[in-house]
Nucleic acid binder design. Structure first.
Lengths: 258, 258
DNA sequence: CTAATAGTGTCTGTTAGACACTATAGT
DNA sequence: ACTATAGTGTCTAACAGACACTATTAG
């Protein structure tokens, strides 16, 4: 290991220091298409990308311009990358107080032609209605939502294709193994709404099957039926509403069914 | 979002850049005490820490000296943090080719008195026998293994207490939800050896119960019995050996038993 | 009445959990 | 013979998966 010096004697020139530290954000949303009245929604998982402008605010040519990229920006020494991500989201899209999770660091030499730039990647879960006011900004000419299928056809800036792939892996795992699904749902939801969220990332037969899932939801320790609360937004038949409750979910591949 | 410039016009002074990028490693091992012959081992999960020296190689006082800390060091622009971790492990302890996983980034302002230093944290799984040659190095006066219980009594350098807490959370989850347990075990192992590994991080009744676990291991899709292979290292009775096989393990809290 | 979604009744096969029991081999 | 570990026999209750069926209500 290399030696460390004290604060006073610390000599930065002995080590090369990074040329930048950025925070990138994979903003996920689930779009609900109400195909017709009194029916469960068709849900699709989408990722928000920005198209990089030709020039920045000062008229200088922008690197990787024209390509689609994850939103993000430089982190300052007074904040964590997660705080920076939160700030960026608020500044750019007016979205505050949403679920953010760090999932990876990208530091492959040469990943950014501008120099040694370390990217700390997060994913965000934004309910669809909060994306309404999205807009282009300084160095983005366009902002758009892409489904997973559409993503693979796009040319993406830097190593964002890798980052997005990892983001998808992480959100899929988290949706199925934790209770983050609630971030996509209203406070109270029907079994078919939860089912639709999960089906955006899995094709598990037990989740696809309506009757099985309607039965299962009642025995999940981290979800409770809200007594007397019904809705007709997914069916003509008034339907039971559920909510997530705080309950520890621990699981092991050595004890589960296979 | 702040604007980006092209390579030519990139002006580093517009953004403050980090004062350093380090890679820290939580080196986990499981010590097996052979309490007596023909018995399963008693296993304990331990973490390797170094005690920071008073002075570095050049005789300058070392920061946070005397405190216990995670091994690690500065990352260079020609490598990823993971590669740096691997290099550090090899340089310091002569350990190569072991399981390494990135689990978190630490960038809280003020976490390191020397400046804006970002730490990329990894955990490593090292089988006990490979730690035999461990030694003190340049800026470590001592190297020692600590059990989880002992860790909470130690004064740790920087924010390493947090990092270690997160490392424990991650390795616990990975041991129970992935097949990394195999990194602690020989190629072929008995049910009681696997059981002992898992019991270092869980108190799950279904895993504690010998008969239940001996039955369960035979139906796990990612483990197979090795025909005709038996050992007497855990029992007088020749005992079936198992091995991990490559099998996708996907699971969801919405389909498992509770 | 029809169509669509929500939800139940019921059967079957599998498994978890518990407990008693057998099997083996070194000392 | 004793002891510690490995492993089986067997029962019960719970649950998954399948399929048929009922319930409700807007149009």
């Amino acid at each position: 290991m290399k030696s460390n010096n004290t604060e006073a004697q610390y000599d930065a020139s002995r080590y090369r220091t990074p040329d930048g530290y950025t925070s990138d954000i994979a903003v996920f949303t689930i779009t609900s298409e109400q195909t017709k009245a009194y029916a469960p929604p068709k849900m699709v998982l989408k990722l928000m990308l920005i198209q990089r402008a030709e020039h920045d605010t000062e008229g200088n040519p922008n690197i990787e311009s024209g390509k689609w990229a994850l939103p993000g920006g430089f982190v300052t020494p007074e904040e964590t990358a997660c705080a920076a991500a939160s700030r960026e989201l608020e500044e750019e899209a007016g979205i505050a107080g949403i679920h953010l999770k760090q999932f990876g660091v990208y530091d492959q030499p040469g990943r950014d032609p501008r120099g040694w730039i370390i990217s700390n990647a997060h994913y965000a879960i934004v309910p669809e209605y909060r994306l309404s006011e999205r807009k282009a900004s300084d160095d983005a000419v366009d902002v758009e939502l892409f489904s997973v299928a559409e993503l693979s056809e796009q040319v993406l800036a830097f190593d964002h294709k890798n980052i997005i792939q990892d983001a998808l892996t992480h959100i899929t795992r988290d949706l199925l193994q934790t209770t983050v699904a609630k971030q996509f749902l209203p406070e109270m939801f029907t079994y078919s709404e939860l089912q639709a969220v999960l089906l955006t990332v899995t094709d598990d037969k037990a989740i696809q099957n309506d009757q099985a899932f309607a039965r299962k939801i009642k025995s999940l320790p981290f979800i409770e039926a809200v007594k007397g609360q019904k809705t007709q937004r997914t069916s003509k038949l008034p339907t039971q509403l559920y909510r997530f409750i705080d309950a520890e979910v621990k699981q092991s591949i050595y004890t589960a069914r296979h």
